[in-house]
Design a protein around this nucleic acid. Structure first.
Lengths: 341, 341
DNA sequence: TATCGTGTTGAAAACCTTTTCGGTAGTTTT
DNA sequence: AAAACTACCGAAAAGGTTTTCAACACGATA
């Protein structure tokens, strides 16, 4: 019996080879499914690896191949509502494969962002996903990074970059089409801060779809305000005052929609029988806890994240794309827009 | 002039050394602030590194030192409300230093979890943070991992592991003490699913504090139900029916609290002048959009995440702890519990 | 003058894996 | 019997960094 004096370090390929009685080269080939190794030998090596619970050192592999099998996910605000689903989608799309995700939150600080980018590059990530905190364009990381970059949610301001965003104009259109299909014709639009392209784009879709249907925008103009329930409540009260004929309201966010519903209840107006309300974002916790449950336009952020992962993988493999790619929204129908009859 | 035929790979220490006219060893020492190098030489090397925008290959460093400077963050559900702040806190605590975070979402699937753990170990992470999706204990990853592990939010079921949780019993107590301090004496408790230790622990704190103050629990018993607004509404109606004398309600979550407030408004009971309402979780989006804004017990999850990062760093440095460590909650006071007079 | 420190530098090993290429033994073809 | 071929295996290099140790030069000490 040998004296087991060595400390229990994590086993290397060399240890496996020794146990199996072969060379390191043969062990490597056996475990990686290369053909030039006898079946019986391969079995022996595999058993040895199993017994030592060997797992190859990804650092060494990365050093050799120049591919680390990691990507960086750079988010601007983790507490924000929108980064998370995108992050989930991306993590999901990568997670099944052989790449892992480094998460970094820059807190909207460009110094910190630079710092993180440097750290990620020094870890030799194979690529970068940058997810913004609003739909407004953000500064590009620059064209001369040694790895491909994909921007999600907030497009890059550099046209040569690839940016992935959801189709807010189309989303606004979908909302109106959904309301028209459920029998509404006197449609108003209450939304958030006009400085957000999310607000103006969605408004564009709303007015465009109304125009296409030959309907006026009830209330006369888009009601811009801020992204919270208080504004939804206030705007709804104004609207009812000025345009009591309204029979449907497109809201720029689910929060605004909850405020709107709240105010309508106060005025003893029933949702949806008297006025239909549709939200935007399909934020589960708000939409399903609302009374009635809230129909909402879903920007499909997980999908966006998954696509970002896919495009980044493609770019890493060599096929790069440029410009802005949009993905369509969809309407998730719940009780708040049930047909009025 | 030399023919610059080589492709522009990312520069190595060797390149820096060549430009500076020194050996690789000297370059390394110069950049790492080792003393045994002449000041003038160090300057020359630093300038060369700067010019090539050299950054050391972390893979190679990790391979050599056995420390990768990375940790794995294993979450059970990313879409969950609670993982995110913890994740933020941890990312924050690490982010400033020299360690990066691998994010993995196991989706509550233990197969996937195993897969992720293996992948992380093969990347030679220096440690692991496991954040659960509920406060109930979860299965340990096992005692024989080659790296330290810290469990956050959901404690491990293995007493030898280190688990970090917020003090839910204390949180319940704080809620009652806050209400008593603002002049309430007829206090009820509406909370979520009894199968969650979050519910039973908070209830324990509530009843304990009442007992300590010599007050009865209004309604006679803790009202367990589910974690959503609908239950909050229903329970509040029942409560008002059975115990109209109630002047304060401790809610097991902010969602329940919103439902409660909603139902109270329907009964024309004013919050807070007639009945005070306090929530739990301090979920900003719910608490600040409520009308009136919602006082809530804050479990300080970011703090939990930061502490997890700290404890993990300590464990990596060698000082390991065991058992369950709790961090205190705090009350964030808003309008819904303003004193009644 | 011989010895000893001191200050500075560079060669080489080590970390772990993959891949190339040469070698050996056994088998088939001429 | 010689040649060619096949199947399998192992030695060695490569990847980029850190660290150890030897070497060197030079001034100071004995």
């Amino acid at each position: 019996m040998t004296a087991e004096g060595s400390p229990p370090r994590t086993p290397t390929l060399g240890d496996v080879a020794k146990v199996a009685g072969v060379s390191i080269a043969t062990a490597s080939k056996a475990l990686n499914g290369r053909t030039e190794v006898k079946a019986e030998t391969r079995e022996r090596v595999k058993r040895a690896a199993e017994r030592l619970s060997f797992s190859p050192n990804a650092l060494a592999q990365g050093l050799l191949t120049g591919r680390s099998g990691t990507v960086g996910l750079l988010t601007s605000d983790l507490e924000g509502r929108f980064s998370i689903p995108i992050l989930m989608g991306a993590e999901d799309a990568f997670g099944s494969g052989k790449t892992s995700v480094f998460l970094c939150d820059a807190r909207g600080d460009s110094i910190r962002e630079q710092h993180h980018v440097r750290a990620l590059l020094s870890r030799r990530v194979d690529g970068l996903i940058v997810v913004g905190s609003s739909t407004n364009p953000r500064a590009s990381l620059g064209p001369d990074l040694p790895v491909p970059v994909v921007y999600a949610y907030a497009p890059s301001d550099h046209p040569q970059d690839l940016s992935l965003i959801s189709d807010n104009v189309g989303g606004g259109r979908l909302a109106v089409e959904h309301l028209i299909a459920s029998g509404r014709t006197r449609i108003a639009h209450i939304t958030g801060d006009i400085d957000y392209s999310a607000a103006s784009d969605r408004a564009l879709g709303v007015t465009g779809a109304l125009e296409a249907a030959g309907l006026p925008l009830t209330g006369g103009r888009v009601m811009y305000g801020s992204w919270n329930e208080a504004w939804g409540r206030g705007a709804a009260r104004q609207l009812i005052e000025r345009s009591p004929e309204v029979d449907a309201i497109v809201c720029g966010s689910d929060q605004i929609a909850r405020g709107v519903i709240d105010a309508l209840h106060e005025q003893n107006l029933d949702v949806p029988s008297q006025i239909a309300v549709i939200g935007f974002d399909n934020w589960g916790i708000l939409a399903t806890n609302s009374r009635p449950q809230l129909t909402s336009v879903d920007p499909r952020l997980e999908q966006l994240g998954r696509l970002a992962a896919k495009r980044l993988s493609e770019a890493i493999e060599g096929t790069t794309k440029h410009g802005i790619e949009t993905i369509p929204c969809r309407v998730v129908t719940r009780a708040s827009t049930a047909p009025s009859n």
